[in-house]
Amino acid sequence: MSKEFTTKDVGEHNTVDKGLYIIVDNNVYEMSSFVDEHPGGAKILKRVGGKDASKQFWKYHNESVLKKYSERLKVGTLKESAKL
């Protein structure tokens, strides 16, 4: 079962040291192990750490990227009450 997070929970994980979480379409991904692999560079992931990165993600990626990395990087979802 997937863990549920609030936006506050995600916001507290905004650096590689704290665990770099991002939100894409109400799913929460832990990116600290991926920053050095990211083809666009670590700087971009660090900039959106702790935030909803859906808009930025979909601007540069397609569904196949989520399918490829989701199992490895997804740590949970946003709680329904956090989706305001």
Rank of each mutant, 00 (worst) to 15 (best):
V10Y: 01
V10H: 00
V10K: 00
G11Y: 02
G11C: 07
E12S: 10
E12T: 06
H13E: 01
H13A: 01
N14M: 04
N14Y: 01
N14V: 03
T15N: 09
V16G: 00
D17I: 07
D17G: 10
G19V: 06
Y21G: 01
I22C: 07
I22W: 06
I22M: 10
I23N: 03
I23D: 02
N26M: 05
N26H: 11
N26A: 09
N26E: 14
N26G: 08
N26L: 06
N27W: 06
V28W: 05
E30V: 02
M31H: 05
S32P: 05
F34L: 04
D36A: 11
D36R: 12
E37W: 14
H38S: 12
G40S: 14
G40A: 15
G41T: 08
A42P: 08
A42I: 09
A42G: 05
K43G: 13
K43N: 11
I44N: 03
L45A: 00
K46R: 14
K46D: 02
K46V: 09
R47W: 11
R47V: 07
V48C: 03
V48T: 06
G49M: 05
G49P: 06
G50A: 10
K51R: 13
K51Q: 12
D52H: 10
D52Y: 04
A53Q: 01
A53D: 02
S54F: 08
S54P: 07
S54I: 00
Q56R: 13
F57R: 02
F57V: 07
K59C: 06
K59Y: 13
K59G: 12
Y60A: 13
Y60R: 14
Y60F: 15
H61T: 06
N62S: 14
E63W: 07
E63H: 12
E63P: 03
E63N: 10
S64W: 04
V65I: 12
L66I: 15
L66C: 08
L66W: 02
K67L: 12
K68S: 09
K68Y: 08
Y69H: 14
Y69E: 06
S70V: 06
E71P: 04
R72T: 12
K74E: 13
K74Q: 15
V75R: 01
V75Y: 04
V75E: 03
G76N: 07
G76M: 06
G76V: 07
T77G: 11
T77Q: 14
E80L: 13
E80C: 05
S81R: 12
S81V: 14
A82C: 09
A82M: 04
A82S: 15
K83P: 00
